[in-house]
Simulated scan of single mutants.
Amino acid sequence: MTEAYRSHPRDFVASLEKGLKVLLCFDRKHARLSLSEVARLTGYTPAAARRLLMTLEELDYLHSDGRRFWVAPRALLLARPYLTSRAAPQVAQPILDKLADRTRQSASLGVLLDNEVLIIARSTGRRTLSTGLGIGSRLPVFCSALGRAMLSRLSAEEALDHLAAAPMDPWTPKTVDNLASAVESVERCRRQGWGECDEELELGVRSIAIPISNASDRTIAALSLSVRAERMTMDAFRLTHLSAIEEARDELIRSKATFD
């Protein structure tokens, strides 16, 4: 609940919030959901979940086979206003394209959203990864390189609050699975200036991310590069590509793009 809502509760449309929450249930791990699964993920009653699902299907934001629901192409219209009206994604895209082309790897730009990282720009190099990430993808803040980079520029107390609130579900057998280890990963990033993820999100994928700050030294985003693990060790990854990531970061800072 935001401060604006506390001040003007009559202006808050709870049904709109609920409908959007249903749409946001769908992701890579939950591509097709039943009514009971949506109710569990949202915390709504089955009756409420059913009404919301049926409404979204009628509006053509969801499709269904009578048992499961999935997101329809019309849902892309919800992202279009941000992508077309804000300069940041348009400014960032050529910079990410240049980084991906130079390194022949995949580059992503993310922002902190609640207790997740939201990808707002992405470019894949010629050695394309199979992670299925794209603009609008969400990553866990506790075990992603982007998340660690963003949290490393917060105070230790703020970072701990984000980590404590994030569900630490394992993504791979190598995923950090406890709060103490997650805190240490963020502190390591704070000390060295970049965050790492070594096969914690997807087996066979390594990532490095660095935070991006504005003129007021407020961290506004993070930039990452990902490689296939069989192509290079993490040490070789740092040695080969960290300087290119830093140069792209500096170019984004000079662009004075805002990502809020």
Results as ranks from 00 to 15, higher is better:
residue 209 A to M: 08
residue 213 S to H: 13
residue 161 D to W: 05
residue 172 T to F: 02
residue 229 A to W: 08
residue 220 I to Y: 08
residue 184 E to F: 08
residue 188 R to N: 06
residue 228 R to V: 13
residue 195 G to Y: 02
residue 214 N to W: 11
residue 171 W to N: 07
residue 218 R to S: 11
residue 181 S to P: 03
residue 191 R to D: 15
residue 171 W to K: 02
residue 210 I to G: 01
residue 207 S to N: 01
residue 208 I to N: 00
residue 225 L to M: 05
residue 195 G to P: 14
residue 208 I to H: 00
residue 222 A to Q: 07
residue 174 K to S: 04
residue 220 I to P: 03
residue 200 E to L: 09
residue 151 L to Q: 05
residue 151 L to V: 02
residue 158 E to R: 10
residue 226 S to L: 06
residue 183 V to E: 10
residue 213 S to I: 13
residue 176 V to M: 00
residue 229 A to P: 11
residue 196 E to N: 06
residue 186 V to T: 05
residue 222 A to E: 11
residue 213 S to E: 15
residue 236 A to V: 04
residue 230 E to D: 11
residue 227 V to F: 12
residue 158 E to K: 05
residue 188 R to M: 10
residue 150 M to F: 08
residue 156 A to C: 13
residue 211 P to C: 09
residue 224 S to P: 05
residue 172 T to M: 09
residue 226 S to I: 03
residue 202 E to P: 09
residue 201 L to M: 08
residue 149 A to H: 03
residue 204 G to E: 09
residue 164 A to I: 07
residue 189 C to H: 02
residue 151 L to I: 05
residue 190 R to Q: 14
residue 155 S to Y: 10
residue 184 E to L: 12
residue 170 P to V: 11
residue 205 V to R: 00
residue 195 G to E: 02
residue 150 M to C: 10
residue 173 P to K: 01
residue 148 R to I: 06
residue 162 H to F: 08
residue 169 D to L: 14
residue 192 Q to K: 14
residue 175 T to M: 03
residue 203 L to V: 13
residue 213 S to P: 15
residue 227 V to L: 11
residue 183 V to L: 10
residue 232 M to A: 12
residue 216 S to Q: 15
residue 207 S to Y: 00
residue 187 E to D: 12
residue 229 A to N: 15
residue 170 P to C: 13
residue 183 V to Q: 11
residue 189 C to L: 07
residue 147 G to S: 07
residue 161 D to R: 02
residue 185 S to Q: 08
residue 198 D to H: 05
residue 210 I to D: 01
residue 210 I to A: 06
residue 150 M to W: 02
